[in-house]
Amino acid sequence: MAATAINGNATPHAVLVTGSSSGFGFGTVFTLAERGFRVYAGCRSAKGRAAVSQEITKRGIKEDRIEVMELDVTNEESVARCAAHVGEMELAGVYAVVSNAGLGETRLLEMTSMETYSHVYETNTLGSVRVFQHFLPLLRKFAELHASGPAPRIVAVSSIGGLVAAAEASAYAASKFALEAVCDSLRRELILFSSPVRVCVVEPAFASTPILEGMKTEETWDAALAGTRENLREDVKKAYRGMFDWQKKKQIVKFHGELGSWTCGTQLNHNHKSRTSNRTRPHPHLAAMDPQYVVDAIVAQVAARNPNHRKIVAPLLDYLLLSVARFVSTRIGDWLLYKIIKWRASVQH
């Protein structure tokens, strides 16, 4: 549903998207703009802002349709400046906030520093909290001035890692579990006080975004582990010696990296409307998803008159595995996850 359709007039609704420089955020910005929304694209780095601006020029999008903004969700002043600017520009309030900014981290617990845990949590969890706190007044303002229109909403991009914690992902999973709890608590607070603001959580499985880049080749894997070997105790090195052997490691991560010529981010960023056919890849249900499926789910929650509280976006096999792992006993769930990972690795190898 286009913005003009749900608004009932020619004025487009305003949407903030955090983490817009790549991946889901990048695709969401341009898909929303094409659907008729006015989008504020928040990017932390100058490089990211330049990439979005370049794409705007390339596609010939009107200047008033997308505004690229500096936004670091780990910095309170940055979020406050962004909210103040959007508030000045949008006197009728903000219709939706897509909290997408996040980062991945795939290391064993004994190989993950406390600084890394803090950084991941600051970005993936507290970053969303900061955005919610500063933008909820603008969402309420929208509701006050559009009483007969669609409800304003928060769309938080979480992960199936926020529902089931995988091995080698304790920092990432903990941050996403916490984000799920924040969104649940906020949704219930808003219901308790009769607020019209809705809260939706989108929970994607693995998709081919830059977060997976560090798992694709021996070089990127070595770079991701740079400095780790030297800082570990000898007993830890011995316990996890296979972690540093790419020939062993790639059997586990191969189903993420073996995407043929489908480079992470390339298809979404440069040809977001097309999707690679499953027939071009062996074992399509074992590989990472096309990120455009996740973008479509995010946009659907923004545009829907009645958004879902939760929306899992995953291939059938992952969805079934997730469902079983969540509702069987812990012993059976652990055994099942182990068997599936080993089977996937053997099939791809």
Rank of each mutant, 00 (worst) to 15 (best):
A3L: 04
A10M: 12
L16H: 12
T18L: 04
G25H: 08
G25N: 09
F26Y: 15
F30H: 09
A33W: 01
V39W: 00
C43E: 07
S45Q: 00
K47A: 14
Q54F: 00
E55F: 02
I56P: 00
I56L: 03
T57K: 14
D72M: 09
D72T: 05
N75W: 00
C82Q: 07
H85L: 12
A92Q: 14
Y95L: 11
A96F: 13
A96C: 13
N100Q: 11
A101I: 02
L103C: 05
S113D: 10
M114V: 10
E115I: 00
E122R: 05
E122C: 04
T125P: 00
S128K: 03
H134Q: 15
F135N: 02
L139V: 07
L145G: 09
L145C: 08
S148Q: 08
P150Y: 12
P150G: 05
I154C: 00
I154K: 00
V155H: 00
S158D: 01
I160S: 09
A165D: 10
A167F: 08
A173G: 07
E180F: 02
C183E: 01
S185Y: 11
I191E: 15
F193T: 14
P196R: 04
R198Q: 12
C200P: 06
P204H: 04
F206G: 11
M215E: 09
E219C: 04
W221G: 04
D222Q: 10
A224K: 07
R233F: 07
E234L: 12
E234F: 03
V236A: 01
K237D: 08
Y240G: 08
G242H: 13
F244R: 05
D245S: 09
D245I: 07
D245K: 07
I252V: 10
F255A: 12
C264V: 08
T266S: 15
L268D: 04
P282G: 01
A287V: 14
M289S: 06
Q292M: 12
V295I: 09
V295K: 02
A297C: 07
A300H: 11
Q301T: 06
N306M: 07
H309N: 11
V313I: 09
P315F: 03
P315D: 08
D318Q: 08
D318C: 03
V324K: 06
A325P: 10
D334M: 11
L337R: 14
K339D: 09
R344T: 15
